[in-house]
Design a protein around this nucleic acid. Structure first.
Lengths: 221, 221
DNA sequence: TAGATTGTTAATCGATTAACAATC
DNA sequence: TAGATTGTTAATCGATTAACAATC
């Protein structure tokens, strides 16, 4: 990946990382709908961002637009795919084959975009041996041996809270460099390991906080 | 809720809203483990925040600590519950009873904390009429009539992308003030409606971006 | 060409951090 | 009391926005 616009070593702000997938999603929708061009103003209107922010975000990675025209939808989509890194496949292990784990594993979009769940692990004897999305569910005991044989990009933790950290440790020791964490606990990992949290409980609590904040405002008015 | 520390009308920064549920989660763990007191430095150490940030965040809502001592775990947990608003029950409808919808509905924690799924809707004739977590799955046609009879705090959208906006419109027209959105699309709503997005795809893409960003750094080194 | 829109700079805004007086 | 730690202020840092020259 060439980083035309970005100086070497300059880190990308967190906000940009959050917005890039949003751009990707909407550009994919636009392309599917047959749209040819889009301006930063139109993008901003559709996604509730300012046009300046979108141009500023994109300029971290290069110059993808044309004055007086805007952006070509297909070109920009390709660029964003490049930037995000969804140009190759990723190998994944899923730990935890309960309701949530199974739902994650069944998500078609992942498979379509090259995210391949290669193995599933659980501790529940009732689940072990069953098949899910083409994978046999294996005992957690075998995780370490599996990782030694099969280099893995991403580990998904879909276990209850109590098991989160110990499963995380097994994954990290096994050389997995990034963790997608659905277990509702804070994971401690070495600096070089990436953790992306997907805390359903936190999200619902943010919603409730804002709901009350709003009602409070209305009471005072 | 009294807002001792916060001036009227002052809005709470987004970062604080993100961190409050993290504090809640960890304090609940501490209390379950029998811990009596905790300092901002210890909290920061455990959760990878600075002590100053934690004290600053809490001071938006009041003074809950004691110089030379820190915070009493139970007291602070109660205060955070108050702040978040999880002191009453919330009524919920769930739209979409596929894998993800069912997994969300089955999450025990929600029920324990007073989040009550009162009704489930779907369009799939194979699902309609089935029971899930004690609710019969109803046809989406009946959503509007249901909402007219049953005031609802939160609507969960666990449909595919294409149905997201139309289901959202039905919920908003039915008077639902907040939407927990799992469908991978940006929802347009009136200003007063709260949307909390839970985009699995976005989260995975953030992870992949950071994975590549890191690898890039290593190549250059 | 005239109109439109980019990429970028400078100005603004807001959030985080460091430091410390207050005090348990 | 002496030691510890809060709550808050001022300083720093970083992100967003507004504006505009460049140019398609």
């Amino acid at each position: 990946m060439t980083l035309r616009g970005r100086k070497k070593g300059e880190t990308v702000p967190q906000g940009v990382v959050v917005r890039l997938p949003v751009y990707f999603r909407y550009l994919a929708e636009l392309e599917a709908a047959g749209a040819e061009r889009i301006s930063s103003a139109q993008l901003g209107e559709a996604l509730d961002f300012t046009a300046a922010q979108i141009r500023s975000d994109l300029s971290y990675f290069g110059s993808f637009g044309q004055q007086g025209y805007g952006y070509n939808v297909t070109d920009l989509l390709d660029q964003v795919k490049q930037i995000l890194g969804i140009t190759r496949d990723y190998s994944i292990v899923l730990v935890g084959a309960g309701n949530l784990g199974k739902a994650i594993g069944s998500y078609e979009w992942f498979r379509d975009e090259g995210f391949q769940i290669k193995a599933i692990f659980d501790i529940d004897p009732h689940l072990i041996g069953n098949y899910h999305v083409g994978c046999i569910i294996r005992p957690l005991d075998e995780l370490t041996a599996y990782l030694a044989e099969n280099p893995t990009d991403i580990g998904i933790i879909a276990t209850p809270k109590d098991a989160g950290q110990s499963v995380c440790d097994l994954l990290v020791e096994g050389g997995v460099g990034s963790i997608w964490n659905f277990s509702p606990t804070h994971l401690n990992v070495p600096d070089e390991v990436i953790v992306e949290d997907m805390h359903l409980t936190d999200s619902l609590l943010r919603l409730v906080f804002r709901l009350n904040e709003q009602n409070l405002g209305q009471e005072q008015a």
